[in-house]
Amino acid sequence: MKASLPLVVSMTLAVTIVYAAEQRVALKDGPGRDKVEANCASCHSLDYIQGNSPFMNRGVWDAEVTKMIKAYGAPISDADAKEIADYLAKNYGQP
């Protein structure tokens, strides 16, 4: 459901997001990590990246980043998207 003010009022939904203690995911150090943390973590925890490793090659990581932007509407610039895919392929890609 898309949040809207009348809805929130009529249903008195508590809009607090309730989670277990999400731990900070320490991604591997490398160029582009800051872009990953700044963009990807808005919508999902970064353990998604760890869990999907190390079996994806550059092409598959590219496709994942593109899917996040085109299908899921993530507001990521082209320049950041390239840095993110570079970082993921290098640090979490197929060895």
């Binding site: 353990d47 869990g51 490793s53």
Partner: peptide, 28 residues
């Protein structure tokens, strides 16, 4: 399972749940 999945999994309890295998925190 992918190596990175196994190494990032822990047993953890969400409120009201017993410890389950955490795959991802957010979304849970």
């Amino acid at each position: 399972l992918p190596e990175g999945m196994l190494s990032s999994s822990i047993l953890e309890a969400l409120p009201g749940k017993v410890p389950l295998i955490k795959k991802t925190w957010r979304p849970p």
